[in-house]
Nucleic acid binder design. Structure first.
Lengths: 338, 338
DNA sequence: GTAATTTATGTAACCGGTTGCGTAATTGGT
DNA sequence: ACCAATTACGCAACCGGTTACATAAATTAC
């Protein structure tokens, strides 16, 4: 395999034209079986490999799908990505994945980079920081399929895949109230993204329906990493009214909170009950096991992949913007049971 | 932005040649500042965007790095990927990520796909199943940089990034013995990959050095998912000699084992001490906290990215195969303390 | 046996940048 | 004012497939 062979090399060695070689390799109907066979053999012998650069240029498509996520290393997101990859891979598409790290600037940069690199479609879960969505217009203007999942925004002709976050927030809170909690607080990251805003809305609605709306209290953390736990614990310790329930918008933070509560002498669930979000694997291995909202990440990824593929195949009219809402489920475990 | 503008459009509108436009856009030294300015302005006004397909074809490079990992959705791997992405993104490279799902066939397929799509370099962490490595020759034959990390194989001119798995296995086992364990078993996935083989070797060596080599026993699990826990628990229950120490090659499995042990009435660490591997976040939130080997995944990812970039930039001679060994560290927590 | 079809292949333009080489234009030296 | 050295830019080939259209060859029709 010293130097690469091209369709021109094959054409010359077989005494036919490059066009015929190209058509043979693509199984074009107007080429005789005999010729196709000859070409295929020659291709195999010479170790011919298609030059995608040339093919992409000619066809103006790359068989590549771009993905922008806030971060790769979260249980939920890597599970979603795994689902997307599975679908894309089976369909022969490559996946270009990049992280925004929750920064609007980086999301903009990645959007532009992926556009220029010629992805056939883009899947996005928005950064927390992002307030302006103009950077996506290079995709929407040119009718390049653009889909949002989890952290979504409603743009014309862009499908979204979500769960009913408000209902989930409502159920989590309602459950805590039903378990006897009188002062449930909510721990969330910034409320810029609709996922968090809606969970918060659900939380408030549940309190209101229970006649506790004056007790609404949300603790905003910068992110779901361990150091943020302190803010929550401090609030609880200083609170004049005794906090007896916490609805956390993330399992990973919820488990740190539980751990910290316990080492501060609180009994979970007897003193304080906790419900998380996502149903990360960790929820089942900590003590006490964490009640949470099941969020079907793998399924979301597969659906995102399938949805975008059907747009690319034209089997769905690109103008038909659709919204897919996946089922969530409250999972009651030890951390919230009286 | 109706139709896309090309360098030909700009050339025509400015009355200059496409070559000059191209050179201006690339800040070529032999173009006057005046002309460059004109071109840049025209480019901005018309919303010109480079066509990477054409550029790639001409330059025979894609500014893209391929990655093949066993699976995306593991704490460790997604952390490594996060590190790779950070480096690649900062250097203006795209990352095409695919999963082998531990299958040799899929790894072969992905290798071929990534080759054909023209990645400038390939980073691989091998599938458990892979026994034959010929599929990588399309890369090595053409001197396309190929690097292995974590699950590596020694191929000519391919850098590898690893930790000293044998030493880590030794230390984990030695620690258990020092804590008084008399019958330490090892839980590992298939021993095909060197990471696992070496940890096992370290385990055996530690036993041998302690004069316990006749007690060596490894439990092989198919993967590190919860259902595999049963095999381990069953073994321990049925064992005639009382097992009092477990060295597990994965934190995620170790925590399930601990959980299952506890619900079977064993006290960890008093009855059985456990050491895991990786230092996943979960290790710090379970009860008891899990002793483990710290495996610097993010750093490994960054180094993999940097190493491959320096190969691409030619700052390292491609012929100089190198091996980077990262520092690991035994972290002693509750699960292994007497 | 000749015209009308059908089938198989070739021609050449196109996708949109990149770059070696040649040349015109500008600057400099004396 | 004349020749040399720079500097700035254009020409044209090239990267390697793809495909509309034209054409030659093989079949079928009558």
């Amino acid at each position: 395999m010293s130097k690469k062979t091209t369709i021109y090399d094959i054409a010359e060695s077989l005494g036919i034209s490059p066009a015929t070689v190209s058509r043979s390799l693509n199984d074009h109907p107007s080429i005789s079986e005999k010729t196709k066979k000859k070409v295929l053999e020659a291709a195999k012998e010479t170790g011919y490999r298609i030059n995608k650069f040339a093919s992409n240029l000619s066809l103006q498509k790359s068989n590549t799908i771009g993905v922008i996520v806030p971060r790769l290393n979260s249980d939920f997101m890597s599970t979603v990505l795994s689902g997307i990859e599975t679908i894309a891979n089976n369909a022969g598409y490559n996946l270009v994945i990049s992280q925004s790290l929750e920064l609007e600037e980086k999301e903009k940069f990645n959007t532009k980079t992926l556009f220029e690199s010629g992805v056939d479609a883009l899947l996005v879960s928005l950064a927390n920081e992002t307030m302006n969505y103009d950077h996506f217009s290079i995709f929407t203007d040119r009718k390049i399929p653009l889909l949002f999942f989890d952290r979504v925004i409603d743009l014309p002709n862009c499908p979204t895949i979500i769960i009913d976050n408000e209902a989930a927030g409502y159920q989590a809170t309602e459950h805590l109230i039903q378990q006897g909690c009188k002062h449930v607080i909510h721990v969330s990251s910034g409320l810029n993204r609709s996922v968090y805003k809606l969970r918060y809305a659900g939380y408030r609605k549940a309190l209101k329906d229970a006649g506790q709306n004056f007790r609404e209290r949300v603790i905003q953390v910068d992110n779901f990493s361990p150091p943020e736990t302190k803010k929550v614990i401090d609030y609880i310790k200083k609170s004049e009214i005794p906090i007896d329930g916490i609805f956390v918008s993330s399992d990973s933070l919820a488990v740190y909170i539980i751990k910290e509560l316990r080492s501060n002498g609180y009994n979970v669930p007897n003193d304080i009950k906790v419900v998380g979000f996502n149903n990360d694997p960790v929820a089942q291995v900590i003590t006490p096991e964490l009640s949470t909202i099941e969020y079907p990440g793998y399924k979301m990824g597969k659906l995102a992949g399938q949805s975008i593929l059907s747009h690319l195949n034209g089997s769905i009219n690109i103008e038909t913007a659709d919204q897919i809402i996946l089922k969530h489920r409250l999972i009651i475990r030890e951390s919230s049971q009286k």
